[in-house]
Computed example of a mutant assay.
Amino acid sequence: MQVKEIKEYLRIEHDEDDSYLEMLVVRAKMYIRNGVGKLDDDNELFKMAITVLVGHWYDNRELSRIGNNSYSIPHSFEAIIQQLRYCYVGVDAE
């Protein structure tokens, strides 16, 4: 997944955060793989999950905000993860 795709989704026009976004992509892939297991990097749902998670982390850099304990991950992300868990049922995990 390219930072360019993430920037298009998030409507970021500057290049100042590119290295930060690259770091978030790497961490999002790790986070998703830890929750799902083996995944195909070309799976469009996997790419969407990365995009949603990176967008969430990018927009919510603080640990918490006043009047709210934390920023919860959007329900759409959880739904995508649920789908990915069953994408490769019967396929050996690495």
Rank of each mutant, 00 (worst) to 15 (best):
E5M: 06
Y20D: 03
H56M: 01
D15C: 01
I12Q: 01
V52Y: 10
E5S: 15
R85G: 02
W57G: 05
A49M: 00
R85Y: 08
P74W: 01
N60D: 01
S64R: 10
L24E: 13
A28S: 15
S19K: 15
I32W: 00
R61T: 11
K29L: 06
A49S: 10
M48D: 15
E44C: 02
E62S: 09
C87A: 14
H14E: 11
Y71P: 00
E16Y: 14
L39K: 03
L53T: 02
D18L: 00
K47A: 15
A49D: 07
N34Y: 00
R61Y: 08
T51A: 12
M1F: 06
D42R: 12
D42L: 14
E5K: 11
E5Y: 09
V89G: 03
V54G: 04
N69T: 05
F77S: 00
R61M: 09
I73Y: 03
N43R: 14
S64K: 13
K47V: 15
I6L: 06
E62N: 05
H56Y: 14
E94P: 13
L39C: 03
R85T: 02
D92W: 04
Q2H: 13
S19F: 11
Q2A: 07
V26N: 12
E22V: 01
T51P: 12
D42S: 14
Y9K: 15
M30I: 06
G55Y: 00
D17I: 07
N43I: 04
N68M: 13
I81N: 00
V25A: 14
N69W: 07
D42A: 14
F46E: 04
G35W: 01
K47E: 15
L84I: 09
I6T: 05
N69G: 04
Y88N: 10
K38F: 10
E5C: 07
I50F: 06
E62P: 00
A49L: 02
M23H: 09
V36P: 02
Y31D: 12
V26A: 11
L53Q: 01
R33E: 15
Y86R: 14
I50N: 01
V89F: 06
S76Q: 09
Q83L: 13
C87V: 12
K7Q: 13
V91W: 09
D17A: 11
D15H: 09
N60A: 00
Q2L: 15
E16M: 10
D40T: 03
L63C: 02
Y31T: 06
E16H: 13
G90N: 00
I66S: 07
